[in-house]
Amino acid sequence: MKKLLYFLLLLSLIVACKSTAGKTSDTKNTTSEYGTQEDQMKYYFTGTGNEPFWGVKMGSENIEFTSLISGKEKLIFPATEAIKAMDANVKMYKVTNETSTATITIQQLECQNSMSGAISPYKVAVEIKNNTELTAAKLSGCGNYNTDYRLHDIWVLEELNGFKVFLTDFQKELPRIEINSTENKFMGYGGCNAISGSIFYEKDLLRFSKVISTMMACASGNKEDQFIKALQNTTSYSIGDNRLTLSNPSGKLLVFRKVD
């Protein structure tokens, strides 16, 4: 009897340890160099720097700056529109609150973290000072846009260039794309061939690039070429009512229905 009780106790401890280990792993999966998954849903851009450690999170409602600098441990600024450079992908944000003023510059330029060695696609510069100070602290670091998590799904085409699509417009089935917002990649079916590529995401900007496809010959009248061209011409999007609408300044290009 004692041996049986000892065995049951040992078994319960093993199960408990496995359960705890699983929870720890799940927690790690929701955190990255640029913050938790919740942060990445709330903020469209996150930047970090070292020596001294600092971070900035850009959101539609506010901009949050944190650091180890005395008097600047945590500052909240109201969101503002970017000042954009004419000849380069550079955005500048000038923000102020009751106590402090900052200028935040985001430049599309490969950037390496000075401690971890991780490579990011954007360089970030921050000049920040309390309103009682004469000179601003100048900080530099790296950053990344947090791709809209709502894109992460499987989408089947409903409309192409303003017209509803039918199976007869394609080979066997309607075109579809599966977007991986974590890796900024997509794959799918163009209506005749398998397709894949990358997505480029910034606030209010979405592009499908580096599109490649298999080389299967398509039947006459197949609209795959029109579909891929519209995909490549996309610059903006909207999501609502289980639909993904892709557009550019000329108008609506594609409408997809969520199927996953």
Rank of each mutant, 00 (worst) to 15 (best):
K3Q: 12
Y6P: 06
L8E: 01
I14H: 03
T20N: 14
T20M: 13
A21L: 12
N29S: 08
N29Y: 04
T30Y: 11
Q37I: 00
E38S: 07
Y44I: 04
E51F: 11
P52C: 00
V56N: 08
N62S: 12
N62E: 15
E64T: 14
L68D: 09
I76V: 15
A85H: 14
A85Y: 11
N89I: 07
K94L: 02
K94D: 04
V95W: 00
I104F: 09
Q112E: 14
N113K: 09
I119R: 13
S120K: 06
K123P: 04
E127Q: 05
L134M: 13
T147L: 10
H152E: 02
H152K: 05
L157P: 05
N161S: 06
T168S: 09
T168V: 01
F170E: 10
E173A: 14
P175A: 00
E178F: 13
E178L: 13
N180Y: 04
S181C: 04
F186Y: 14
G197S: 01
K203A: 04
L205Q: 10
C218K: 15
D225H: 14
I228T: 15
I228P: 13
N233R: 13
N233D: 15
I239D: 00
R243M: 04
L244I: 00
F256N: 02
K258T: 05
K258P: 07
